[in-house]
């Protein structure tokens, strides 16, 4: 609204905008400005009535009513929309179970404790082990039925299951990796070695997801986590110094596993659109409920 006319209450909508609005052709975000303005400005509502045909006007009012009902987005949702995320994607992200305060504080607590353990034990291995595992735990909980109260509704929704999984995975990964990164900053004396969790974290997450397509959302991440812990216990018992996964060679293997798992995940994407296998644990709770 470059040539808006101003008066005592602020500005008035441009006549061309009002005509486009009446025809239903005004695009967002200009559309939203005019929507918001029309609520407050009687002269512009009158001008709109003259500018448009009655049918289009009714549609305009219906849209305005719907906007008035629309919930105010939360802080995260508003931020996401501001940086260009589509409003429906932002809503899906805001409903991602693990992006809740309780989960985030649990992750922060675990990281703080493991960072503290680095100072007392003078070795970063516990921090590296847990920081590698936290993103997988977050992704698994955001996809499975454990934390998502609307799991059953989401399961039978036509939105592609893989798309929802990816939206949530990216959100959880960005958050988890960000928190891990912050924790890493508290260990400056280890330099880049303190970042050795990153590739294992990606490898564990992608492997867990790829196996989810076959084994379901509970068994797959549980197996991968168990395997990771077993690997660390064995290597700690048999080697001195840096644990194998955090050596240069281990990092290379982790990167390779992450790539292979990501490729298989993409190949198996249609499986996330299907019904889970009847033997998966998600249905266990329903066995006696029929």
């Amino acid at each position: 609204m470059s040539d808006d006319k101003h008066d005592g209450i602020g500005w008035h909508a441009d006549a061309d905008d009002l005509r486009a609005y009446a025809r239903g052709e005004l695009e967002a975000p200009r559309l939203w400005s005019v929507d918001a303005h029309l609520i407050a400005c009687a002269p512009c509502r009158l001008a709109l009535a003259e500018a448009g045909d009655p049918l289009a006007l009714d549609a305009g009012w219906a849209r305005l009513d719907a906007e008035l009902d629309a919930p105010r987005p939360g802080v995260v949702e508003a931020l996401l929309t501001r940086i260009g995320v589509a409003d429906h994607t932002a809503r899906l992200l805001a409903a991602t179970p693990v992006l809740r305060a309780s989960w985030l504080s649990a992750v922060l607590l675990v990281l703080a404790m493991t960072v503290a353990s680095v100072y007392t034990a003078d070795s970063p291995w516990l921090f590296l082990a847990l920081a590698s595992l936290l993103p997988l735990a977050g992704v698994a909980l955001s996809y499975g039925p454990v934390l998502d109260p609307t799991y059953e509704m989401a399961l039978v929704a036509p939105l592609h299951g893989f798309r929802l999984l990816m939206i949530r995975t990216v959100a959880v990964l960005v958050t988890s990796l960000g928190l891990n990164g912050l924790a890493t900053l508290a260990l400056p004396e280890y330099g880049l070695r303190a970042l050795a969790w990153l590739l294992p974290a990606l490898a564990l997450t992608t492997t867990g997801l790829a196996l989810t397509a076959r084994l379901g959302p509970v068994l797959a991440p549980a197996l991968v986590s168990g395997g990771w812990v077993a690997l660390l216990v064995v290597t700690r018992a048999t080697t001195h110094g840096t644990l194998v996964p955090f050596t240069a060679a281990g990092q290379g293997v982790a990167a390779a596993i992450a790539v292979v798992a990501a490729v298989s995940l993409h190949r198996l994407r249609d499986r996330f659109d299907g019904s889970p296998s009847p033997s998966s644990i998600t249905d266990f709770a329903h066995r006696s409920a029929s």
Binding site: R91, L92, A95, M153, A154, A157, P158, L159
Partner: peptide, 8 residues
């Protein structure tokens, strides 16, 4: 509204 998004 959230369920509506899931319903495309």
């Amino acid at each position: 509204d959230y369920v509506a998004i899931l319903k495309e």
